[in-house]
Design a binder for these strands. Structure first.
Length: 203
DNA sequence: AATTTGCCCAACCGCAGACTC
DNA sequence: GGAGTCTGCGGTTGGGCAAAT
């Protein structure tokens, strides 16, 4: 499924616009960056870039570290369990990729964002095209009398980033496995809340 | 075998909020 | 408290590659 990730492609993915080096990172650049971060830690990226002698901006160094060099990065296929979790979290949080990634150890926000854009968004669209695209909140409300919207109101792009007090909209997604039915969804919600008590701040 | 098409994903960009002086 | 700088985030781009033609 997933292709091998090139370690250090030499060809730039982007044309350089300024003096700073851009495009794909080389093995040597990775090595230098890792060495500096080992000494100074993953912060003060401008200084890290300078110390490493890399002709790159701090921003670029940070991105490289977070998405590639950081320890415990999990590479390769997204498992079914992970995919399921991404779907659920996306329903709760919308396009808050960093938050979603925070719940998937070893996965980066960029990876999840890419996976969503290339795989999951299509799956959902296909499902909606098959007639499952009714408003999730409406569906929930039709079933659940005391359903109260707790949404963020930030779904400016029409994303299903709202939830209800009963959380039952999650059940409407046939792509979610049956284990999420009935009391189990509340159990999952409880676990989710336990994981991050501050999550309501984001809604 | 050569060309085209579509997908994947690393990397860049712009913006907003946090931080520092 | 204000200005300047840094950091983190989400959206987008485009090169590389495999599959299809």
């Amino acid at each position: 499924m997933s292709k091998m990730i090139p370690i250090a492609p030499n060809l730039s993915r982007r044309l350089p616009k300024r003096e700073a080096n851009r495009g794909a990172w080389t093995t040597e650049e990775d090595r230098k960056l890792a060495q500096v971060i080992e000494v100074h830690g993953p912060r003060r990226w401008k200084m890290v870039a300078a110390k490493a002698g890399l002709n790159r901006c701090g921003k670029s160094c940070r991105l490289r570290w977070l998405n590639y060099l950081r320890p415990n990065i999990k590479r390769g296929n997204i498992s079914d369990q992970e995919e399921d979790l991404i779907l659920r979290l996306h329903k709760l949080l919308g396009n808050r990729w960093s938050l979603i990634a925070g719940r998937l150890p070893g996965r980066t926000d960029n990876e999840i964002k890419n996976y969503w854009n290339s795989h999951l968004s299509k799956k959902i669209k296909q499902k909606e095209d098959r007639g499952g695209g009714a408003n999730l909140l409406q569906q929930c409300g039709a079933r659940c009398a005391d359903c109260v919207t707790m949404g963020s109101g930030s779904g400016a792009k029409g994303e299903p980033n709202e939830m209800t007090s009963c959380g039952s909209f999650i059940q409407d997604d046939a792509m979610l496995d049956s284990s999420f039915q009935e009391p189990i969804n509340l159990e999952w919600m409880s676990k989710f809340l336990e994981m991050d008590e501050g999550w309501l701040d984001f809604l």
